[in-house]
């Protein structure tokens, strides 16, 4: 959070420091005992971490009667997609996925627009009450919205926004930390650019759109990705704000609405696998971007 205000210490001054490793001919890593040990331990840990997922997938491929058999078996005796078929036929999950897409896109788009505008104003303009307002927003970072669910729900129900997409999405848009991150980034853009554009007669909106935004690709991607992942997986507020299953997102639907057939583990696991799939797929496709987005925004 305070990185910007502190003098970077040696390892972090890469651009100005001594020639980095890349300048030298790249050494081929020779397998050292330490490296081998690290690989073995790393893979072991990875297997432990993947095991629950493998177990879930294997369970989802079992016929229902096999799931509670004692003693337990890892592999299904008669693999079947029946559980998946049942989940898909029920149709709830598809609806929740659609809702998740709508809500997450809405939250991400609004967060970007609203926070970029505010960050620009704080970084590049002067207006009465600017410092005061910025301090207020920074203080807002400390506010844990999770602790405010009861008053917030009460207010939303007075406003008639319970069980609407807006009711789910809007409170999630209030992310003062994103304003903070963006402002810090905008501060690093030399003022000359913006002033040149201003001299050419461009208004603030124009400067923002054609000077600041094009130079802020990485931070916008980071904020966008981080916000999207957060919104996609958010449970508490959407859980509080939606009672109508037709409006629930994936985490809320899976966590509260049940199949009316008794507890059926194969189906639950199939639903879990299907519910997890979209974000995991996005991650596999854009691994580098997601990793960077999450670390950049996470490191505030």
């Amino acid at each position: 959070m305070s990185a910007a205000t502190r003098t970077p210490r040696p390892p972090r001054t890469a651009p100005t420091g001594p020639p980095p490793a890349a300048a030298r001919p790249r050494r081929l890593p020779r397998p050292t005992p330490g490296g081998v040990l690290a690989a073995v331990l790393g893979v072991f840990l990875a297997v432990v971490w993947l095991m629950p997922l493998v177990w879930a997938v294997l369970t989802s491929l079992k016929p229902e009667a096999e799931t509670t058999a004692v003693p337990l078996r890892w592999l299904p005796l008669e693999p079947t997609f029946a559980a998946y078929q049942a989940v898909i036929e029920r149709g709830d999950l598809q609806r929740w996925l659609l809702n998740s897409v709508v809500v997450s896109v809405l939250v991400t788009a609004l967060t970007l627009v609203v926070c970029v505008l505010a960050a620009y104003a704080f970084s590049k303009t002067e207006f009465p009450g600017r410092a005061w307002l910025f301090a207020l927003f920074v203080a807002g970072i400390l506010v844990p919205p999770q602790a405010l669910i009861v008053p917030l729900f009460d207010q939303m129900s007075v406003l008639g926004m319970v069980d609407t997409y807006w009711g789910v999405a809007l409170p999630q848009v209030v992310a003062p930390v994103m304003v903070f991150i963006l402002k810090r980034f905008f501060d690093a853009i030399p003022r000359d650019y913006e002033e040149a554009a201003r001299l050419d007669g461009a208004g603030h909106l124009r400067v923002l759109w054609s000077v600041v935004v094009p130079m802020s690709g990485p931070v916008l991607a980071a904020v966008g990705i981080f916000t999207f992942v957060q919104a996609w997986n958010n449970f508490l507020w959407p859980f509080v704000a939606t009672a109508d299953p037709a409006l629930m997102t994936v985490p809320v639907g899976l966590g509260t609405v049940q199949g009316s057939y008794g507890i059926q583990y194969a189906q639950e696991m199939a639903a879990a696998v299907l519910g997890a799939l979209p974000l995991v797929a996005v991650f596999l496709l854009f691994q580098r971007h997601v990793v960077r987005g999450v670390t950049d925004a996470g490191l505030k």
Binding site: V101, V102, A109, M215
Partner: peptide
């Protein structure tokens, strides 16, 4: 900075869809 390409366009489209639907009932 990545150029606002196909993906951004798609995202924009989805956002517009979301905005359109948000006012009404479930999608």
């Amino acid at each position: 900075p990545p150029a606002p390409g196909r993906r951004a366009f798609l995202a924009g489209g989805l956002a517009a869809l979301g905005l359109g639907l948000a006012g009404c009932g479930p999608a």
